[in-house]
Design a protein around this nucleic acid. Structure first.
Length: 510
RNA sequence: GCUCGCGUGGUGUAGUCCGGCCCAUCAUUGCAGGUUUUCAUCCUGUCUACCCGGGUUCGAAUCCCGGCGCGAGCACCA
């Protein structure tokens, strides 16, 4: 009886809510090899961060290996930026929390690709085509074979040598190598797709060493096989790439990796994340650099005080689906708040300061007050504010709060300190240290604790970068510390490298 | 034009393979309230969804057919 019911019980369990990422198909623990293959034409964007995080998360789940591969085989249209190689490695490591297991540069792997190309041509899997792009486009539409297709493997090997030879008579655009997949495929994208072409632009890494360069589908197909990649996770725009590459794998007798896809992602506040476009905008002076807080780059987010842990939670929650999605930044912000709230020390920041001269003759004030650095995390200690011995206390409050005070009979409470009554002439009197009524509570600063600071904050549309001047509480936190400004929101302390004394904050979020 | 993929609340997401435990999960957002000497954190409540139309079935988010919508590929870019 019990045995008969057991299968039922098992099926129920399957229906329970899945936690985290879905299982990888045919994954064997310890044998999974994944790769993340960006074009090094700029630092990583939020879009790339999905690739880094999902892949590295799977690598962790299955005790697998993670390859970071620079797909730098186009020195002309998507010209590699030498600095980007380091930026990407840095961004990757920050996001994943670990370094990639293997780092590869396609440009450094050229001998491998060229050897395979040569062999595939000799095996008659690929042929040299001298049609123009337009001619072939028409042939593809008409499902007609081009004349070059009839050439023998021997002839093609000869043409291949000519393509690679400076004196060979072939120039950029004169000849490409195609994979002999067949012109009868009903999917036009698969018909004798191009694998390698001539490109004369000098490559930032290897100079003029090569004339012929592989295209993504070929380079990636060969490299994934050589590296024994078991799972490829890529955008669904690359679905036909998978199909193209599978045809080549079939000819070569190789096993194609398991492939999973994700859809397009947009973040409401940013729209898309085109590296090329950002590069242009930066060069035009529209932005101050790749880490401009308005940009959707990983370094900008990091500079703004977003944590890698929040980014990871964000992408894992979005999971791996083929839907095109558009997410509000609020989702990431929410993850970030929960992630950083308990570890961010509180500080007082006064925008539009108004100085109040408070008479405290009627009250016995202590020499100093201790304010918790964090309302819940007591082990973070206290902030010690000395109070002057005079009968007059000078404090700063925000103009906005001053107006509120005036509007409510001048009765207001300085947080963690005392009730005060203020008057329109900016004078006032300390009436009680303990809270005596329900009057509003505001943040404030003693004159002694105030230092000039600016808060760099992108406007709502992310177009302007506002520089808000104000008074920040003196504090011992080093540059890079993420803090919470009482009643305002999170920010990250930053000192400029050229002027260490010049400190400012970058706005994180409220 | 050909080919491919996707359609669950405002936004994401679970469930879809193997139809009933689904008057549909979880999170986030919005709204309402509570705790709090921050407009933070935390807690409670609440609104809103299976693209449409047929079919199969005792029963469909789930299977079948047709439509519609959105996205992508058909580059000598990645």
């Amino acid at each position: 009886m019990l045995l008969a019911e057991a299968p039922d019980a098992l099926e129920k369990r399957v229906k329970e809510r899945r936690e985290g990422l879905p299982e990888l198909p045919n994954a064997v623990k310890g044998e999974v090899i994944l790769r993340f293959a960006p074009n090094p034409n700029g630092p990583l964007t939020i879009g790339h961060s999905r690739g880094v995080i999902i892949n590295s998360q799977y690598a962790e789940m299955y005790d697998g290996k993670m390859i970071l591969r620079y797909d730098d085989t186009d020195a002309k249209i998507k010209r590699p930026d030498l600095k980007a190689y380091d930026w990407i490695k840095e961004d990757f490591t920050w996001l994943a929390g670990v370094k990639p297991d293997i780092i590869l540069e396609a440009s450094a792997r050229m001998p491998e690709y060229m050897a395979h190309a040569k062999q595939f041509i000799a095996d008659d899997y690929m042929y040299v085509c001298t049609c123009t792009a337009d001619e072939f486009k028409q042939l593809r539409i008409d499902q007609q074979e081009c004349p070059c297709r009839a050439n023998s493997a021997l002839k093609n090997s000869d043409l291949w040598n000519q393509m690679n030879d400076t004196e060979g008579g072939f120039n950029e655009g004169d000849a490409v190598v195609r994979v002999r997949t067949g012109m009868e495929h009903k999917n036009p994208a698969l018909r004798d797709w191009p694998a390698l072409r001539i490109q004369r632009a000098s490559h930032p890494k290897v100079g003029d060493k090569y004339r012929v360069w592989p295209l993504l589908d070929f380079q990636s197909a060969v490299e994934d096989h050589v590296q024994k990649v078991t799972h490829i996770i890529r955008g669904k725009d690359l679905m036909d790439s998978t199909r193209k590459q599978k045809l080549l794998y079939e000819m070569a007798g190789w096993n194609y990796p398991e492939t999973l896809y994700w859809g397009r992602v947009k973040v409401h506040e940013f729209g898309g994340f085109s590296t090329s476009q950002m590069k242009i905008d930066i060069e035009n002076g529209d932005f101050n650099g790749w880490d401009d807080p308005r940009l959707p780059t990983v370094r900008a987010l990091r500079r703004r005080g977003f944590s890698a842990a929040a980014m990871r939670k964000f992408w894992i929650e979005l999971s791996l689906t083929q839907k095109d999605i558009s997410v509000p930044l609020a989702t990431l912000i929410s993850h970030n708040s929960t992630e950083i709230d308990s570890s961010t020390p509180r500080l007082s920041f006064i925008q539009n300061p108004v100085m109040l001269a408070l008479n405290c003759a009627g009250i016995e004030l202590p020499d100093a007050i201790d304010i918790p650095c964090h309302p819940l995390e007591k082990e973070m200690g206290v902030r010690n504010w000395a109070l002057p011995r005079d009968s007059e206390l000078q404090v700063y409050i925000e103009k906005e709060d001053f107006d509120i005070a005036i509007a409510s009979d001048g009765k207001i409470r300085l947080k963690d300190f005392a009730d005060i009554d203020v008057s329109e002439n900016k004078g006032g009197v300390v009436t009680s240290m303990p809270r005596s009524d329900e009057r509003p509570i505001i943040h404030w600063l003693t004159e002694e604790m105030a230092t000039n600071h600016t808060l760099l904050r992108p406007d709502e549309q992310g177009e302007q970068l506002d520089e808000i001047k104000g008074l920040l509480e003196k504090n011992p936190h080093p540059s890079g510390t993420i803090i919470q400004l009482e009643r305002i929101g999170f920010a990250r302390l930053e000192s400029s490298e050229s002027e260490p004394s010049m400190t400012r904050m970058i706005w994180t979020h409220s």
